[in-house]
Design a protein around this nucleic acid. Structure first.
Length: 419
DNA sequence: TCTGGGGTCCTAGGACCC
DNA sequence: TCTGGGGTCCTAGGACCC
């Protein structure tokens, strides 16, 4: 049996832990630039504020209702998320952290009274962290997600396996409530008279595969209590790392665009290093706003990095060059970003210098970078393979190692671009 | 009239999730 | 004036290979 634990109104609940005066009030947490509502308390939902509502469009009258709008504080939410997950982990041998506020738990164990066990888990999380959660229980992940929705109106815990009228339960669930059915598929399904989870469960396999893809067929099977989506206790390695931002105002010159992309690249490169990853490919994009007037423009360009790297200076100068290629004067830009893909572990890293190799300060910088890589790799020596190394480098090179190597993971290449 | 067949790899775009 | 950010997976189609 699988449990899905989900934090209620997570960001708002975290804010309430640190400021209890917010309890009982309508509260929303806003996205970057205080753009739109990304988390709402029950009281805010009752005022009719939809998910994603733009803050500037909220009627003034809501202030009179006591609405509190907070800027988001993601490091705080990430920290609280860890605390909640650590608590949940005490109750299960297999915990899959699915998102910042959700986790699947394997409930097969000595306890078979799932409902009271889930209530115990729920109460412990509330006592230890202050965060209210709901738990849905079912034989498959997809059904556990549905059960979790039902838990909201059932005292925080809902066990699908103990439901006597399962058809009735599934018939009461609209098809877009099913995990994996988004707006586009829901509209398609409704056109084909499939408007509830029950009707989707009864769909023809071949038809479902043709129109909903293999993932949709899995969803159908999961509704039939056939597990198709396994629990994954260890997170698979990341396939991309990104930093993208909306500006909050129009940007109409290249200078600001390159400044923005430089910042985003350094943020994303820091993430790479934190995860001990190196990127093999970088993609830079820039867009105009789809909400504002003016001609629309959206462009992206990708660049293969040759030897993977997470070294900020090299990535920044490359990203600036890419931005210069896609930027077009005359457009009002509202968004830009960088996405790193083709990730590998950072044993294979390219460093780069953009000043003269004879510059002693730059030399020290590079040696520091190599030292820090060696420390992270738990290695005494990192091998240096490069062309274009000036006289000043010969000695350092020998100091590093003379051992020949042919394996990529032993190689750090150093580009020395003279000004 | 009639223009192979089978495979891989890459990319772009769409859909979905929180 | 002001409309989020970071991910994953799937599919179709093109380039390329023999």
């Amino acid at each position: 049996m699988i449990g899905l634990a989900d934090c209620n109104n997570f960001y708002v609940s975290v804010e309430r832990v640190f400021d209890p005066s917010l309890i009982g009030k309508p509260v929303i947490v806003l996205s970057n630039n205080d753009g739109c509502a990304v988390s709402r308390s029950d009281e805010a939902k009752a005022l009719g504020i939809p998910m994603g509502a733009p803050a500037f469009k909220l009627p003034k009258s809501l202030e009179k209702s006591g609405l509190v709008s907070l800027s988001s504080n993601y490091p705080l939410y990430a920290d609280m998320s860890k605390r909640v997950m650590r608590t949940l982990a005490q109750f299960t041998p297999v915990l899959e952290v699915y998102s910042v506020d959700e986790a699947f738990l394997l409930l097969d164990g000595p306890r078979t009274d799932f409902d009271s066990y889930a209530r115990e888990i729920r109460e412990t999380v509330r006592q230890w962290t202050g965060i209210p959660i709901g738990i849905g229980i079912a034989p498959t992940k997809t059904l556990a997600k549905l059960a979790n929705r039902a838990a909201k109106g059932a005292g925080g815990v809902f066990d699908y396996s103990s439901v006597s009228n399962k058809d009735g339960f599934l018939a009461s669930m609209e098809v877009e409530k099913v995990w994996g059915i988004g707006p586009a598929r829901a509209e398609f399904l409704r056109r084909n008279r499939i408007d509830t989870a029950l009707r989707l469960r009864e769909a023809n396999d071949a038809w479902a595969k043709r129109h909903l893809s293999i993932a949709g067929l899995r969803t159908v099977h999961e509704l039939r209590e056939i597990p198709c989506i396994p629990l994954e206790s260890t997170a698979p390695p990341k396939k991309s790392v990104a930093c993208t931002r909306s500006f909050g105002r129009c940007v109409t010159n290249l200078q600001e665009m390159t400044e923005a992309i430089s910042l985003y690249v350094s943020i994303a490169a820091t993430k790479l290093r934190e995860e001990k990853l190196a990127a093999g490919k970088m993609e830079v994009f820039a867009q105009t706003s789809r909400f504002r007037g003016g001609p629309p423009y959206s462009a992206s360009i990708s660049f293969r990095l040759g030897v993977p790297t997470n070294y900020t200076p090299r990535l920044v100068s490359q990203a600036v060059a890419l931005m210069e290629r896609i930027y077009k004067p005359g457009f009002k830009f509202s968004r830009a970003g960088v996405v790193f893909t083709d990730l590998s572990d950072e044993r294979c890293v390219q460093l780069s210098l953009f000043e003269s190799a004879e510059d002693s300060e730059k030399e020290r910088e590079l040696m520091k970078a190599i030292d820090s890589i060696n420390r992270r790799l738990g290695r005494e020596k990192t091998f240096l393979a490069s062309s274009g190394i000036g006289r000043g480098w010969k000695m350092k090179q020998e100091k590093l190692s003379k051992r020949p190597t042919t394996r990529w993971e032993d190689i750090i290449t150093v580009d020395v671009d003279k000004p």
